[in-house]
Design a protein around this nucleic acid. Structure first.
Lengths: 160, 160
DNA sequence: AAATTTAATACAAGCTACCTGACTATCAAG
DNA sequence: CTTGATAGTCAGGTAGCTTGTATTAAATTT
């Protein structure tokens, strides 16, 4: 007699609260939105989410476009476009590679290095706010567990 | 003599590892990508990320387009498009509202209810995989802390 | 009854973050 | 020195998501 598809409000709530993906996505969104706002307040306008590919993968010694694309897991052309944009914003520059006249070395400018320092402060600030919401201890735990999980996911995924 | 912009490799590492936003986003992405794959394997094709807006905000009693848009924080037009798509996939249907002949009540179909049950299972499965990576205990902690943080963020943001 | 607001929709447009294919300059190997 | 690979660029295109303007029909207010 009971409908095969009977679903209680409780089931629905459970679907939503168990859905860690949703919570994860929303927290990430809050973080990023908040970060972008603060970057803009501090005079760094025009930055886009995709530009992170550079700030996350470019080292102080510089790197080639192709390498950056590989590290970020996107096509050379996409990386090329991102580099164009970030270069136009003044955070990086293209220098001729000494050993290969085809290649260019992408490097942070002073403004780029400054952005990283600013970004660190902003990140710390947001995390401090979160620590006020929940507690300092929980925030540390969250950080550690997330880093752990992230690392595991990465190593499992790249085996394929 | 020291450059104002002196930045060590350590600073750069700290920028990256402290950046909880990045880790958050990547884990969320893994989760969602994995979920979509499993939905497709179980015969639910054509679902897009934006469709979550419905599955997260529509209750069993149904709701109006305008209300759904408000709850999801997007425009009516966006919600309209999402509803079109999800309706075409057969998960929801539009019924005339009894009290207002302009309005329609969006409701889950049986297929929609079934998707929620499937989604719950998929969510549990992914979390079980994560629990294997890190531990069951950490996973529970992560879940709780995230829920806590998410709740705090929500309540703080909606005050504005 | 007239004026205003609201519900839903249609249509046009825009943005982001990607992609593929084709091309030039250069390098490296036989 | 030719041949093939590689570095980067140019051109064009797509999917996904979002918004703005305008319209129709119905409800609400005056």
């Amino acid at each position: 007699m009971t409908n095969k598809n009977a679903l209680t409000q409780q089931d629905l709530n459970s679907f939503r609260s168990n859905n860690i993906g949703h919570v994860l996505a929303e927290v990430a969104r809050d973080y990023q939105q908040c970060a972008v706002e603060q970057y803009e307040q501090l005079g760094h306008n025009g930055l886009q989410l995709s530009h992170q590919a550079i700030f996350l993968h470019l080292g102080l010694e510089g790197a080639r476009l192709t390498d950056l694309a590989k590290r970020a897991g996107i096509s050379k052309q996409s990386m090329g476009q991102i580099i164009d944009e970030v270069e136009k914003l003044g955070y990086i520059e293209r220098l001729p590679a000494p050993s290969d006249r085809r290649a260019k070395i992408i490097q942070f400018t002073d403004k780029g290095l400054d952005l990283i320092k600013t970004g660190t402060k902003i990140g710390i600030g947001i995390q401090r706010r979160y620590a006020e919401y929940i507690s300092e201890g929980k925030m540390v735990l969250l950080h550690d567990i997330l880093a752990d999980l992230h690392g595991s996911i990465r190593s499992h995924n790249q085996q394929s």
